[in-house]
């Protein structure tokens, strides 16, 4: 049977690069996002590059009622699911609406969809890999982005539980924790070049980790050690810091 990959939040720079890598491997590609204009363009690009089949789906991860229909609309149960939706939120907007939106995109919406897909895989005895793209921001809440950070922390916890729950059914779960990435989302920020990954580097790391059945990866790898240090700072000190 032909292998397929489903990418949720497929219009991001990293998701696009992941799709290209799977297209090179001749996977069937299913892309889901709210931005159909961008999605169709990415689909055309993948077809021109490698002649693979690409299907696009409209998906708003925050529209929970649509999740069942979305999943039954997939052409096949995917061999790899990559959940790459992410939203940092409007800067300094601490309104309830913004908090809910950040949480729904980064955590609850994706958890709802992944849970349904995982159950479907389990019930049809389908082996596969589920990849959740979380963030190093979920490792410790910081004043700069703690709503986003806490949503990612919840998503990381969720993925850990899902991995545990699905292990016996041969469904593998990979948690990805990227540090800084040079994307549309971060342009204009003064990111240190040494610590900032290009989208294609992150995509390469992810696809390799899927092949090697890794549980958790940091990308760039150096973030594992940076976060180790950051997590070791005692709270009485951490609360005074601006990092």
């Amino acid at each position: 049977m032909k292998k397929t990959v489903l990418i949720i939040g497929a219009n991001s720079d990293v998701a696009k690069e992941i799709a290209r890598l799977y297209a090179k491997k001749e996977y069937g590609i299913e892309l889901a996002s709210r931005d159909m204009e961008m999605l169709d363009l990415i689909a055309v690009d993948l077809k021109t590059r490698s002649g693979v089949e690409v299907v696009t789906h409209y998906l708003d991860v925050t529209d929970f009622k649509s999740h069942d229909a979305f999943i039954s609309g997939l052409s096949a149960l995917p061999s790899v699911v990559v959940s790459a939706a992410g939203y940092m939120g409007k800067k300094d907007d601490m309104s309830s609406d913004n908090i809910k939106l950040i949480t729904d995109i980064n955590y609850t919406g994706q958890a709802s969809i992944l849970e349904k897909i995982a159950h479907k895989m389990r019930d049809s005895k389908h082996t596969g890999v589920i990849v959740g793209i979380s963030s190093v921001a979920g490792e410790r809440g910081r004043k700069a982005n703690y709503i986003y950070g806490s949503a990612k922390a919840a998503f990381t916890s969720y993925l850990s539980g899902l991995r545990n729950a699905m292990y016996q059914y041969n469904i593998h779960v990979l948690t990805v924790k990227p540090g800084f990435i040079d994307t549309k989302m971060t342009q204009g920020l003064d990111l240190p070049a040494m610590l900032t990954a290009q989208p294609d580097e992150v995509a390469n790391d992810i696809v390799r980790a899927v092949e090697n059945k890794k549980n958790i990866i940091y990308t760039k790898w150096i973030w594992k050690y940076i976060m180790l240090v950051i997590k070791c700072i005692p709270e009485f000190q951490f609360k005074k810091m601006s990092i």
Binding site: D13, L41, I42, V44, D45, T48, R49, T183, K184
Partner: peptide
């Protein structure tokens, strides 16, 4: 660099 789609051949 992010405007990098192949459109048609």
């Amino acid at each position: 660099l992010r405007y990098d789609k192949m459109l048609h051949f």
